[in-house]
């Protein structure tokens, strides 16, 4: 938790600055809208974080969402599937893609970057081909109220995606930080060989991370599809994987694997969305959008590096203190033995 404190402070400072400079940041509408986006982005960012903890990467998130959006629209409006069937089909499809990625990474030993880069291109192309490169949507067809509610509705004033994110985060937190699977995931990501030497089925664990990431991407994808209500296959979900990676890295995940927390990823996601909001509210030219984000991520990562090095130095100092005490006792012990 200590590790997430730095970025949390950064988030609070940013929020304070924005609300002082432009009080409309605190209006219910703005908070609701920002919360909605945090929810939608947060869900798949958690999945991406999971993959990053295994030492891998998932670049095809945005393309998966485009493919999913197009298929969802076709299933609901053209094939007239029941909502629940369409959602299950989408979930299974994207989790299946995740499983395929996991298989290629752990069994065929391809590098995650390459596997998912191919996915990025492949699924985008498929999405555009299936839809004839035409924008798909859900129009005004009746019957999707429950689905629309997931994306656009509020529960007691809290946007539904945010509610979903909270539920999923709670589950993920227990899963990652308290369960056996979570420990195995960190172990496999940190040092796959040592994990294997401890009897962990690392291939299964890593594959599962990709499958879960797929599932969470699907949930986010469904929310985004109904949130935008129109899916232009060439641009829907563009760069979303990078938002997810940025959120995970801001939240303390190391691309080397084995590091990261659910809370960190949540704060990271929130930070990115607040930054977007800040650019709009403070009349910063929107062309600077990415530049602002890049700078803040860099600052966040630098601060994290600084603090983690300091923490380690403290532990080493502590050990040296106790070693000092040991040396004297060990010296007497060995001289007795000889």
């Amino acid at each position: 938790m200590k590790k997430d404190l730095g970025i949390f402070v950064l988030l609070v400072v940013l929020c304070t600055i924005v609300s002082i400079r432009n009080p409309s940041f605190l209006t219910p509408e703005n908070l609701q809208n920002t919360g909605r986006l945090i929810g939608a982005f947060g869900i798949f960012s958690l999945g991406l974080g999971l993959v990053i903890i295994t030492g891998g990467i998932e670049l095809s998130v945005g393309s998966m969402m485009a493919l999913l959006g197009v298929l969802l629209s076709i299933m609901l409006t053209e094939w007239r599937w029941a909502a629940i069937a369409a959602i299950l089909a989408c979930l299974l499809l994207v989790m299946g893609l995740g499983w395929l990625h996991g298989l290629l990474v752990t069994r065929v030993k391809l590098q995650p970057f390459i596997v998912t880069l191919c996915g990025l291109l492949l699924y985008r192309g498929l999405a555009r081909f299936i839809s004839d490169d035409e924008t798909k949507g859900f129009g005004s067809v009746e019957g999707f109220e429950s689905l629309r509610f997931l994306a656009g509705g509020n529960l007691l004033g809290v946007p539904m995606p945010f509610v979903l994110l909270l539920i999923i985060s709670a589950v993920m937190w227990v899963f990652l930080h308290r369960s056996v699977f979570g420990r195995y995931l960190f172990a496999s990501g940190r040092n796959e060989e040592a994990a294997r030497y401890s009897g962990i089925n690392t291939r299964l664990i890593i594959s599962l991370a990709y499958v879960i990431a797929g599932g969470l991407t699907a949930i986010s994808g469904i929310i985004f599809a109904f949130y935008t209500n129109s899916i232009s296959p060439a641009s829907h979900g563009n760069f979303y994987e990078l938002y997810g990676i940025a959120a995970a890295v801001l939240g303390g995940c190391s691309l080397r694997g084995g590091e990261g927390t659910v809370i960190g990823i949540l704060i990271g996601t929130a930070l990115l969305q607040v930054l977007q909001n800040l650019v709009n509210l403070l009349d910063i030219p929107s062309s600077l959008n990415f530049a602002v984000m890049g700078a803040v991520i860099l600052i966040g990562v630098l601060a994290d590096q600084f603090f983690s090095q300091r923490r380690n130095r403290k532990q080493v100092a502590l050990l040296r203190e106790s070693a000092k005490a040991d040396v004297t006792s060990a010296n007497t012990a060995t001289s007795n033995n000889v």
Binding site: S179, V180, A187, R190, N191, G199
Partner: peptide, 25 residues
């Protein structure tokens, strides 16, 4: 070893299910 793990996590890693109930450590 997983050198970034602490002593406790390293020692319990191979038999983690012995220290767990219902999948939770």
């Amino acid at each position: 070893l997983i050198v970034e793990f602490n002593i406790r996590e390293n020692i319990t890693l191979p038999g983690l299910d012995r220290y767990s109930t219902g999948g939770l450590v």
